[in-house]
Each structure stands twice: as C-alpha cells, then as structure tokens.
Design a protein around this nucleic acid. Structure first.
Lengths: 254, 254
DNA sequence: ATCCTAACTTTATGCCATATAGAAACTGCC
DNA sequence: GGCAGTTTCTATATGGCATAAAGTTAGGAT
C-alpha cells in the first residue's frame, strides 16, 4: 500500500521512515529535530532557526541534520506541519457558517500561538497529516452546502488566505509597537502626522480626508483573544456573507 | 511645510532628499540604486537582490549604497513602492463594484509584472507615493458607498490581502510547474496519487472523496491574463458580494 | 573477528549584511 | 593658489549562513 514511489519528503511528513537495521545506529530522528527547531522558532522566529543552531541544541554538528531532513527548506515544511496541530472537531449540530467561523478562529489562534508560521511561504496544497486534518475539518463543515469540490476548495483557500493575511498584519503591528521608540514611522499617530505633511491635498483628496479624520489618533487596545479582534471579525464576516450568497444560489438551483 | 521631523526613510520614499552643495559630489542617487535593484528583482526575484550585486551593476562597492539607502530593508521598501507603479484612474461613471473590480484586477496584473512584490513582507500602512496612490484610488471608488473610514480601510485591506495571497499562490504554482521534473510532489496529479496512499479513509473521509473525485487529474491551462483567471475571480466575487451586503445595510440605515 | 553500512564530523566554499576606518573629490573661504 | 570642511566612496574585516565533499566512527550481520 504505502508503496516505494511515495517521495521521501512525504514519508518524513507522515513519519513513515524506518530505521535501518544495519550501519551505525542513529542518535537523532526527524521528530526530535523538528521539535527542537519549532522550539527555536517559537522563541526567535524563522530567522532564529538555522541548521547550526538547531544542531548545537542537540549537541551535534549542522551536517548531521542532513541525514534526517534533507534540506532547510524541507525542515521548514516539517516544522510547519508539526506546529499546525489539529483543528477543532467539527460539531455536526452547527450549520456551515458557525462551523467555518469556529474553524477560522481556531486557525487565527494557531498563528497567535506560533507567529512564525505566518512568516513562512505558502507551499501549494496541504501535504502533512496536520494540514490535511485542517482541510478535512473544513470540508466536513462544507459538506451540507452542496457546493462542488472546486468551489469548496476555493472557499477554504479564500478563508485560509484571509486568516493568514490578517494574522501577519496583526503580528507585524505588534512587533512594530514593541519597537515604537526605535522606529516611529510605523507608530499610528506619527504615521498620520508625517504623511499629512507629504500629501498633496489636490492629488490625494481622500487620503487627506482620511488622515484628518482623526482615525489614526485612537489607540487601539490589543485584544486578549485575537480571534475576537474586531478588525479580524470584519473581514471574516464579509467573507462568510459572500460565501452564504453562493450557497443560496446553489440551493435555489437544486 | 515638509518639516525636518519627517523621518529620513519617508523623505527618500518621496524623493525629498537634496544633494548638499559641499563635499564630494555623488555619483549615485536613490532613484538609480532602486531602479537597478528592481531590474535585478525582475530577473531573479528577491533572492537575486543583494547589496553586492546591486553595487556591482553600478560599478561601485556594496558599502557605497549605504550612504543612499540606509539598509537593505529600506532598499526593499523603496523597491516596493517604485515597482508598484500607479493604479488606473477611477472612472466616475462606474459604480463602486465595477470600480473595485478594476482596481483589484490592476493590482493582480501588477503582481504578474513584478512577481517578487508578492514575496515581500507586509509593512503596515502605505508610506510611499505609489502605495498612497493605490489607496487613494480605492478610497475614491468607495466614496459613494457611505461607509465609515474604518470600514473603508478594512475593506481595502481585505481586498488587497486577497489579491496578494492569490497572486502568491499562482506564482508559486507556476514556479513549481517549471521545476516539475525535479519536484514532482507539487505536481497536481502526483499530489493526488501520493496522498491517496497515505490517507486513512476513516480518519479523512472528505479528503479521500476529494482525491478520488478526479479534480486533481484535470490539467489547468495557465490563463493569459491572470486577472481573468477563474480561481482569482471566484474569490474576488465572493469578497465583493460580502462587501455589497455591508453597503446595503449602511444604505438602508440612512 | 571482520566487513558492511549508515550516522556523524571535519573541512572548505562562496555567499550574505554591515561595522569601522580611511582615502578621495568636491565647495567655499582665505 | 591653497587649505578646511564636508560628503562620498573604498578597503578591510567580522561573523553569520547553507551545504558540498570526504573522512571517521560505531554498531549489526556474518
């Protein structure tokens, strides 16, 4: 069944590698390396993860890792899947809209728990067991909608992309706020004042109105639960409204 | 007016730096450096841009750049703004929905013209003249909707985030397809077949159904105009439907 | 006891951003 | 005409990075 033509990267994601009986026995294994790397990333972000640093933590040279993870790129994929964890189990009592809301909010909290996940590039379709589990959960929620497979995929992708994007922004904002004194450009108030001086009122009338509206003078308190942040909810609700319209049109066809 | 308390980074974005009359005259200037860096990025992506390479192209040492751009991070910001170009002028005849569609499609084509723009991290609010112009254009389109400033901002952000995300995916997919023989994991057919062997039918029933649906067997022809790609249009239409509902509720209040 | 083999180490290459210090080239002033 | 001041650019160096190539080590199988 799990035949030989499965690429080694997939095998490692699903932990299907077997220790060989011959040769020097390994001190390391994929799981150990990836967990160490995730620890480092949780502390220092993606930039804090280097083959050397991971290896040093394990009391081993950098090159030793290559036996088990192939390349740094692959290590990052393994880290991504591991840190993704498992989605909440869909509640069959809920309708699809509540189900997707719960799903998206859980995803948002995942990025909050491991902000470095939002730094990673996107690798096409889900490949590892945890990513597949997230996809499975969303598909289960969408099952009663009667959408076609392509539509379901597009919908999930749309939602996941939104959560990723808004997580990134929130994380960047928080990081910027921490360095406020160093880098005042990004401070909201300073932003409005500085740009206000540069913007030609005739060429940028709307921007000018926006900057003088006082919107940037408010100090937004960082919400305790990022999944309840009003800015996050705004986009989520728009998205769900748009998806709802699609579901309605599908339902009225049938 | 353009007072001294404007940070140097902003001044450079708006090309407000003045050559001093004393001292050794500069061979370089910001515009020249940034244009050279953009050329490099157009050819080789963000990874192809290093201070050394940019400097060599200009017949100068890497350190010479630092007089003009401060740091590589700042150079990337300058590149981003320059390559963003100008948005299409909003047509006052169009309603907001057509206007946003045009805007989003133009943004999509921008990422197609400079794919490396999609690789860059997000830097909070728009700071440079071109980015401000994009924002201004979107605000002008939204002007008749009667939305509040915060809603307009959230809406634009939602849309821009969507275009960025789907551009990234399309670019990654195309890049993966180019390296198909090397990296078959991401080839769509191979994806379905390989994952099919790993996935437990009981634990992942929906994924299993999806993989056996034949959806991944189709070969999607790459569209000539990315802004007309059906996958892109799908998300855009959902988003606009969601925004339309918000506008309606605002209108019925008034 | 010896061989085989996989796991790990050593060493080296060629990148990278940028700190520091100094040389070079111009203007304005005497 | 030449010196001072100022700015630009160069030379050099540091410490980091991923990973290629080749060598060493340690245990299981025979």
């Amino acid at each position: 069944m799990a035949a030989d033509d499965v690429p080694i990267e997939l095998k490692r994601l699903w932990r299907l590698t077997t220790r060989s009986r011959t040769g020097r026995p390994a001190e390391l294994d994929v799981e150990l390396i990836v967990r160490t790397a995730v620890d480092l990333a949780d502390r220092d972000g993606v930039a804090g993860v280097s083959m050397t640093k991971v290896a040093n933590r394990l009391g081993v040279t950098a090159m030793a890792l290559y036996t088990h993870v192939g390349s740094k790129e692959h290590l990052l994929e393994l880290m991504q899947d591991l840190a993704s964890g498992l989605p909440p189990k869909p509640d069959p009592e809920q309708d699809w809209r509540d189900g997707l809301t719960v799903w998206a909010q859980a995803l948002r909290r995942m990025y909050d728990a491991h902000p470095w996940l939002a730094e990673l590039p996107i690798h096409g379709p889900p490949l590892g067991p945890h990513q597949v589990a997230w996809m499975e959960a969303a598909l289960q929620v969408l099952e009663p909608t009667g959408l076609e497979w392509g539509e379901k995929l597009n919908t999930i992708n749309l939602l996941a992309g939104y959560v990723l994007h808004s997580s990134r922004q929130a994380i960047d904002l928080a990081a910027g706020r921490q360095a406020r004194k160093v880098d005042r450009v990004r401070d909201e108030r300073a932003y409005g004042r500085a740009l206000g001086k540069l913007i030609d009122r005739d060429r940028f009338p709307q921007m000018n109105a926006l900057l003088t509206s006082g919107l940037f003078e408010r100090t937004a308190p960082p919400p305790s639960d990022p999944a309840e942040d009003p800015d996050f909810r705004f986009g989520l609700d728009r998205l769900l409204d748009g998806i709802a319209k699609l579901c309605q049109s599908r339902q009225s066809e049938a």
